[in-house]
Amino acid sequence: MEERDPKFSRVGRKKKRSNQLLNILIGAVVILILITGYTIISGGNDDKADKDTASDDNIDLVVDEEQDEDDSEKGTEEQEEPDDISEERASSDGASEENDSERNRNEEQSTDEPGTVTITEGDDGIVKETVIETAWEPIGTEQTGEHVSLYDGESVDWNEKKKAISYATNVPESNLIFWKIKNGGGPQKSIGIVSTKDQSEKYRVYLEWVDGEGWKPVQMDILNTLDFDY
């Protein structure tokens, strides 16, 4: 039986223990490295999650602030709109009232403006219609000095009366029969009764004298008949 060297046996056992201890240390280092790596990775994910959460919170905050601003602006617009509508309505009402006032003034003035014609139905069998036209003007005159109304059938004043009657009726003197020209109730007033030569149209014209300007028609009756006392 072979005997082993006791020295060799001790050296072998020491070497075996050293290998075991080294393996334990290596295993511990590996475990430590794994733990450290996991911690780093886990911590990074948590930081990223925290950052994402913070980013989401910031986004929500910005959205909320924008929403608050929109609501604030909307509220301001809603408050301003009724005022704007009221102002527009007041302006429109004011313009309407102004237009109505202007229209009323124009209607009042139209009764006095040249060219206005007033026609009134006659109230008896003699007068068919009475016409008053504000556009009538004095016909002019050749007379000078103090005016004297004449009914002599030949004077300048008499002929100017005929001219004024023709002007009012819009019928030429050559187509008129002058049935009568008489005093109209005053020294400067006259009345002429005339008809067309075929007597289809019959008139009674009221004249007034305007100093320096001549005879002016002021009223004309369109007659139904000449059968009355004139």
Rank of each mutant, 00 (worst) to 15 (best):
E65N: 04
E87A: 12
K48G: 12
T141I: 03
E137I: 04
S55Q: 14
N58I: 00
T116S: 15
G153P: 01
Q109S: 05
E88T: 04
N99L: 01
P82A: 07
N104D: 07
E97Y: 09
E69H: 03
V117A: 08
P82R: 09
I59T: 02
E107C: 07
S91E: 13
E142A: 08
K48R: 15
D56C: 01
I59C: 02
T53V: 01
I119K: 04
K51T: 06
E142R: 09
D68C: 02
D68K: 05
Q67C: 01
G43F: 11
P114L: 13
P138E: 06
D47E: 11
R105W: 02
E107Q: 12
Q79W: 10
D157R: 08
E97T: 10
D60G: 03
N104H: 02
D50I: 09
Q79D: 13
D84M: 10
T116V: 12
Q109M: 01
K74D: 05
A90C: 02
A90Q: 14
Q67V: 01
Q143C: 02
V117W: 12
E80C: 05
A95E: 11
D124C: 06
S110T: 05
G115F: 13
S72N: 05
D60N: 08
G115W: 14
I59S: 05
D57N: 06
Q67G: 03
E66Q: 09
Y151T: 05
D52H: 11
G153M: 07
E87F: 09
V62W: 08
I85E: 13
R89E: 06
E78G: 07
D100W: 07
A54G: 02
D47Q: 14
T116C: 14
L61T: 00
G140I: 03
E108V: 10
E69F: 08
T116N: 15
E133N: 14
E146T: 09
D112T: 12
G43D: 10
E107P: 02
S92P: 03
G153W: 03
G44A: 11
T134V: 13
S110P: 01
T144D: 01
E142W: 05
E88D: 10
Q143M: 08
A49S: 12
E98H: 12
T141D: 03
E97N: 12
D56R: 09
E129Q: 09
P114G: 08
L61W: 07
V156I: 14
T111V: 01
G115H: 11
G122S: 10
S72I: 06
D68N: 02
N58H: 09
E69P: 00
N99S: 08
G125A: 09
S91M: 05
E73K: 10
G140Y: 11
T141F: 02
T141V: 02
A54L: 06
D124Y: 11
D124W: 11
V131C: 01
R89H: 06
I41R: 15
P138A: 13
S92N: 14
V62I: 08
D123C: 01
D52Q: 12
E88V: 00
D152L: 03
S72H: 04
S55Y: 15
V117I: 15
K74V: 07
E137K: 13
